[in-house]
Nucleic acid binder design. Structure first.
Lengths: 224, 224
DNA sequence: ACGGTTGTGTCAAAGTTATGTCCATGTGAT
DNA sequence: ATCACATGGACATAACTTTGACACAACCGT
């Protein structure tokens, strides 16, 4: 499960966000102020940090500066300060997003998840992960649910494309362009058929590939 | 490259701003008055609009009002009117910022870029929000009041259209054109039926979709 | 070069899901 | 009160996806 750190001095808000996030499968450690946050950061790795700005002891800008000295973990500011200057200061310090109160929980969650997803830029290392599926792009290897999967070339390329655009709906036309190439003359149905064999090859993890009626396909991390 | 629209009747100022902005990588279309601005807006999408207030033909407030009827593009007023009343009027019309002359070019540029970045922020994340409803346009997902909602393709497209034109009344004919496509041969009632299922799917948030008697439908942020 | 194996696309039938139409029943405007 | 208009339920079917069968092409070891 992903884990984030929420730094916020308002107790009620802390609780609300924590509950909402954990209800959506996002673990949430809490800190009351900047000092406490840095303590926790000593011993833990988080997938993202949500930072209030106005806090006792050490404010959000300070925490951001300290964190950025040694990490590129996604940081999202979460604050009542809506002024341009504060925003620019935040971005200048290397934050990844900026949400002003009051905000919708759904938005906050979506933004956080988006940041985490993007943060997974582990592709450099040659590894792409999504839910139970892992792709080793160096060796063109695939594993799902712990077992190695043998994929045909087309299956592999298709899955790679889906993995690179996880969560996004891709139309059959888009997939044909990206995987088959722009010059492919064939039928849309070709995509369906390959999706089928890919699903079959992936076994249980094949359920992560969702059909989006009238739109296309997408890959989800999906718990179930 | 980002493109903005500058509406300003003073020729010298127009030139100065345009030069400064393009030197910093921001394309700049020019309009001499409100009427010209609306003309350009017919055919172009801008990342932001800079509006003088005192102009011949149609003043900045008028342009702002017209634009806000159909778009949430960031608008920045740019004027010699420094009075509080004018500022409040600008904000009431839905502008995003307000700069009084004389101003520093650097500040104007920073503010503009911040506005564009913010506008991008939610768009990049693929998020559209209105009241309790959130649409993830990348994944074609919808949530309302914190819970995920499953929408059929038509429902989704219809809601997307309403969200993009929030606050505006859309006639059934308009909705048929935009959502069903210009070639749809069927009955107006089709819209009603889909609105109904959309409302049902959205649960409580369905109340944000208002029926406008004899005119059509519109989406409102309104809580109640 | 040769047969066997594997990968891939096409096609049509079967299975799903979504969508429009119809008509009876509400609801708001004047 | 009346009329025009919006809503709700039932149903048929249109639109779309999955599945299975098949044919052909590419690949591989001999």
């Amino acid at each position: 499960m992903e884990h984030i750190l929420l730094v916020e001095d308002e107790p009620r808000l802390r609780g609300i966000v924590r509950d909402y996030f954990s209800a959506h499968g996002l673990g949430c450690d809490l800190a009351r102020d900047g000092a406490e946050a840095l303590d926790l950061l000593q011993d833990h790795d988080y997938d993202s940090i949500l930072l209030d700005i106005l806090m006792p002891n050490l404010d959000g800008f300070g925490v951001c500066r300290a964190v950025r000295k040694k990490s590129t973990v996604p940081i999202l500011f979460l604050t009542a300060l809506g002024g341009e200057e504060d925003m620019l200061r935040g971005y200048a310090l290397g934050c990844d997003d900026y949400v002003t109160k009051p905000f919708s929980l759904a938005v906050l969650l979506a933004k956080t998840q988006a940041l985490i997803r993007r943060g997974r830029g582990t592709e450099d290392a040659g590894l792409l992960c999504c839910g139970a599926i892992t792709l080793n792009t160096r060796g063109r290897l695939c594993s799902a649910g712990g077992r190695d999967i043998k994929l045909s070339p087309r299956e592999y390329d298709l899955l790679l494309c889906l993995m690179r655009n996880r969560g996004q709906v891709l139309t059959r036309a888009q997939l044909l362009d990206k995987v088959w190439g722009l010059d492919f003359e064939g039928d849309d149905r070709a995509v369906d058929v390959r999706i089928r064999s890919l699903r079959a090859a992936l076994g249980d993890a094949g359920k992560q590939i969702k059909t989006v009626f009238k739109a296309g396909y997408k890959l989800e991390e999906g718990e179930a």
